[in-house]
């Protein structure tokens, strides 16, 4: 229960017993009636005021002008906006600090290095060989060679080529082959070719 609510809504005569008891704890019946009358009169007075205004508002010239300026300003807002002095001072100090920092750092940097000489180096890449000459070593059985050197026995026919101590490469072997062929084609004094001579044939094992 609320005394204000009762004053605004009910006359004293309309209060129920509980409400009357509640009101009488706070004020007399006359006081309630007087205050109730004030509220009712006020409500009537103000209702009349609003329904039949005695004064009318003037056109909102100031506000409209401000609204138009606001629309115009647009990008100029950046320059028109106000900031507090401490903020401005803080930004100034920050900028000054940054400037000094860069100045100090730039003085401690190393001296610049300039290029004064260019050195060119020629790199020779060896070409791949198109011909490979391989040396072929003909191995001779050393044991047999040793025995032939110490033995007084004549060489057996057909073994002569095996005792050659020579180490020949391909070219030399080719040369020897040619020489052999030439010798075989040569003719003896009696007109017989070497290749047809019986002794030669036995020696060479033909």
């Amino acid at each position: 229960m609320d005394i204000l609510n009762l004053l605004e809504t009910k006359n004293f005569e309309d209060l129920n017993t509980a409400e009357v008891n509640f009101v009488c704890q706070q004020m007399s019946a006359d006081e309630y009636k007087q205050q109730r009358e004030i509220i009712v009169m006020t409500q009537g007075l103000f209702a009349e005021d609003i329904s039949q205004p005695t004064i009318v508002p003037l056109p909102p010239n100031k506000a409209l002008a401000a609204l138009k300026n606001k629309k115009k300003s647009g990008i100029l807002l950046l320059f028109q906006s106000k900031i507090s002095l401490w903020k401005a001072a803080a930004v100034f100090v920050a900028l000054l600090g940054t400037y000094h920092y860069f100045i100090q750092n730039s003085s401690t940097t190393k001296a610049p290095v300039y290029i004064t000489e260019y050195v060119e180096k020629e790199v020779v890449v060896p070409a791949d060989p198109d011909t490979v000459i391989k040396e072929v070593v003909v191995e001779v059985q050393k044991e047999k060679l040793a025995s032939t050197e110490t033995s007084s026995q004549p060489y057996k026919v057909g073994e002569l080529h095996q005792i050659s101590p020579l180490r020949l490469n391909i070219e030399e072997m080719a040369m020897l082959n040619n020489l052999e062929a030439e010798i075989l084609e040569m003719k003896q004094k009696d007109g017989v070719r070497v290749s047809e001579d019986s002794i030669t044939r036995k020696v060479l094992g033909i």
């Binding site: 005021d49 609003i50 205004p53 004064i55 009318v56 508002p57 909102p60 506000a63 409209l64 609204l67 138009k68 606001k70 629309k71």
Partner: peptide, 23 residues
């Protein structure tokens, strides 16, 4: 709408409240 610069919106608000504020 007024924040977007709408003058008609302002006029409507003025219409609604000017008399009450004045009184």
């Amino acid at each position: 709408r007024l924040t977007q610069g709408d003058e008609s919106a302002f006029n409507e608000l003025y219409e609604r409240y000017a008399q009450r504020i004045l009184l």
